[in-house]
Write a protein that binds this DNA or RNA. Structure first.
Lengths: 118, 118
DNA sequence: GACGTACTACGATGCCTATCGTACGAACTG
DNA sequence: CAGTTCGTACGATAGGCATCGTAGTACGTC
């Protein structure tokens, strides 16, 4: 915390608090290939990424939609920095609520990608 | 008729082979509260259960639908035994494809149930 | 064969959602 | 301020899906 009026931007986005994150919502969010891919890239980079850094085979409108689904499910955290919108995994909250789940999911996704991709 | 029947029953149901089980499909199947509950009960019992042993707040038609979704995603295995339809978790296949995932999911579901229910 | 049980198939319905296109807003750079 | 970049809002569309009710099939039993 201590982000005392971070001045980064005026606009801020609604996130569920940790206690309101529901497992079903998380699973639903990750059941879409596009969103699973987003989360995999976020986890791989371990840093915040802007929306435009993702190359997705959909229009910007659809992209916005997917990022919002992930945010409202509590999977990612979003905030503005200038014109860019930064995206970060809510690793701390997810690990606290569901220990080991995120890692198992990422490992499963990686395994499947390896198996199918080569 | 005559086709070397496996004795258990003549009718058999289409299941995806292990290699065709997709993570997204599994997550989608488990993102429904009703289906997550079914899987939790199956995991708790560690034995095969008939469809009618589950008490779900939906009609039988809807129940059939949910069991089929789970089967087609590769989460459960179904077979007939007389008039009853037996349901079993595909633990072996899931553990082989996605090590640790099923346990992490069940643990997460149990944790959430404890947190919300008690 | 007649009956009861267990589950299915099919059609209907209403909601959710992934996708797009266009028009707009917010911030940075001249 | 003008222009550019980045992302949003809104409406439309098409498909998916959770639910139900009714009618039907497969199996065991009498």
């Amino acid at each position: 915390m201590s982000t005392a009026a971070p001045a980064a931007s005026s606009r801020d986005l609604p996130h569920p608090v940790r206690e309101d994150i529901r497992l079903e919502a998380v699973l639903h969010a990750l059941s879409d290939p596009m969103r699973l891919q987003i989360v995999r890239e976020l986890a791989a980079d371990r840093t915040e990424l802007t929306c435009s850094q993702f190359v997705l085979p959909v229009t910007k409108s659809t992209s916005t939609h997917h990022f919002r689904v992930l945010r409202e499910a509590g999977v990612i955290r979003q905030c503005y920095r200038g014109t860019a919108k930064m995206n970060g995994l809510r690793r701390d909250d997810l690990d606290d609520l569901f220990p080991g789940l995120l890692d198992a999911l990422l490992a499963a996704a990686a395994r499947q990608a390896t198996r199918l991709g080569g």
